[in-house]
Structure formats: C-alpha cells, structure tokens
C-alpha cells in the first residue's frame, strides 16, 4: 500500500448538476448544483448531508440509473451513460430477489456474466463465507433477518467484482445493534477486498467510523460543502476502541458541526 505512489482516480465527478422536472407546479426541483469530487483507488469515501439534499440523486446518477445532462461522471476513465457492472450498488433495502436463494442472489452477477456453474459456485462460496452466511446458502430471503438480507446484498455486489461500490444508506433499515456489527464487518471487508467505495449515510458516526474521507453536502440544492479526512487506521476501526480515539472523535465532531450548520440554517 505504501509503495503505491501513483494514486489512481477511479471515480471523477465534475460540474454535476441535476434538476427534476415537477409535473404539478411546473417548477423544477434543483437537486444537485455543480458537484465536483474524486475518489481514488481503494478509498472509502463517505457522503453525508441533510435529508433531501440530493445524496440518492447523486448515487443514482453515478449508477447510471438516472441520466445526467449537466456535468460529467467518469468511472475508471469511462463516461457513465447507463447502468453497468463496473458500478455495483447496495441499496437501502428491498433489493435482493425474493425468488432466488442466498446462493443464487449472490451469484447473480456472475450468472449474468455467463461464468460456468462450477467456477461460479466456488466464487459464490468465497463471498458467502466472507459475509458470514455459511450454512444459509439455500435459504430464501424471507427466511432471513434484515441484517442477513443486507449481507446478501453486500456479497452480491462484491461477488460481481465492480470497479467502484456505491452504497446508499445500506444499514439505515436495521436495528442499532445489527448496524454496529455490519459496520465493523464492512470495515473488515474493505480491508480484505480493498474496494473503492462511495458510501452514503446521514449517520455522522457511521461516516467517521467507515470513511477515509467524508464529503459533506449542503442542503438542497446539494453542493460539496467540505471534505474531512479521517486519519484512523482501518485496523483500529472497532467501535470499542474508536469511541476513545481522538482521530475518530475529532473527525466526527468536525463532520457533525458542519452538518449541523446546514440543518440549523434550514430551520431558520
């Protein structure tokens, strides 16, 4: 890692703006305004901002699910024109297919790529084990807890081996205790896979715990307000230790005050 002098930029967003047409009032909703950001290879980038500031809009544009007219989005040097397997997405909830078993959900990307079954099975098992779902391979999603479903979603995206992983509040719908476990597991996975990750959340603790850097957005129309670097080694990102580590608490407090400014302005 240290020897890697050339930092490659995997995700580049330049001058990105977005308006939603409003069919009822005829007035456009200005969701994103001139967003510029870069995420380097292997980096874990967290995005926080007040509710409705355009985070999901940003993610949908990066994923290619929402076309953009203004600005440019490049992944690994290629302009984003639509959805593709180079950008894996972990959605907040309701995304793994109920009619597929755990195993077939996780191997879905490889199945689409046309990987032969024996090779696919081997790769799938690797990720089943990585997210701790060993023994549940043949279960259907409705037989799993909320936390387990999100593990399946995570493994499915990882297994397809995307260039960047986009995550939109993936742990927002699970209970607090499960969320803590999932955050620690995601950190462990980030170490193991060295994936480039853009992680959206409105939980400041989560952003500081997981991110190498944190992008703070203004309220709508969302602009990049500030970037906070979190100098906490990945290996020491365990909740028990992090809460007492100044590298974590300092970053968290800084992010929190930046976010609060936006929320307070909103109230006034």
């Amino acid at each position: 890692m240290e020897g890697n002098a050339v930092m490659r930029e995997k995700l580049i967003v330049e001058g990105l703006s977005h308006h939603y047409p409003d069919e009822y009032t005829g007035m456009d909703i200005h969701a994103l305004d001139n967003v510029n950001l870069k995420v380097t290879e292997g980096e874990f980038a967290a995005v926080v901002g007040p509710s409705g500031c355009g985070k999901t809009t940003l993610l949908n544009i990066l994923a290619g699910l929402l076309p953009h007219k203004v600005g440019s989005v490049r992944v690994d040097g290629h302009e984003v024109k639509g959805p593709g397997p180079d950008r894996g997405v972990v959605f907040q909830e309701h995304a793994i297919l109920p009619w597929r078993t755990v195993e077939r959900n996780i191997g879905h990307g490889l199945e689409i790529q046309g990987l032969p079954a024996p090779e696919r099975k081997r790769r799938v098992q690797e990720f089943v084990d990585l997210v701790g779902l060993t023994g549940f391979e043949n279960r259907y999603p409705h037989e799993l807890s909320g936390g387990m479903k999100q593990r399946v979603a995570l493994a499915r995206t990882l297994c397809a081996n995307p260039v960047v992983m986009l995550m939109d509040e993936p742990f927002a719908a699970v209970d607090a205790q499960t969320r803590i476990t999932l955050q620690e597991e995601l950190n462990r996975i980030a170490i193991a896979t060295r994936k480039t990750i853009l992680f959206i959340t409105h939980n400041v603790d989560e952003a500081a715990f997981l991110g190498d850097r944190c992008f703070i957005f203004t309220r709508r129309p969302g602009k990049l307000k500030a970037t906070v670097k979190i100098n906490l080694p990945r290996e020491s990102r365990v909740w028990k230790n992090a809460v007492a580590d100044p590298a974590f608490t300092g970053a968290r407090d800084e992010i929190l005050s930046l976010v609060r400014e936006e929320v307070r302005d909103d109230d006034g």
Partner: peptide, 18 residues
Amino acid sequence: VPRTYEHSVLTLGGNRWH
C-alpha cells in the same frame, strides 16, 4: 414489482431480457 429489483439487476450488468 419494486423498482429496486429492476435497478439491482441492471447494476449487475443485466439487460432487458434479464
């Protein structure tokens, strides 16, 4: 059918037939 199912298959590289 929830849109996220469709979106998730698209982001796994699926086409219209998938």
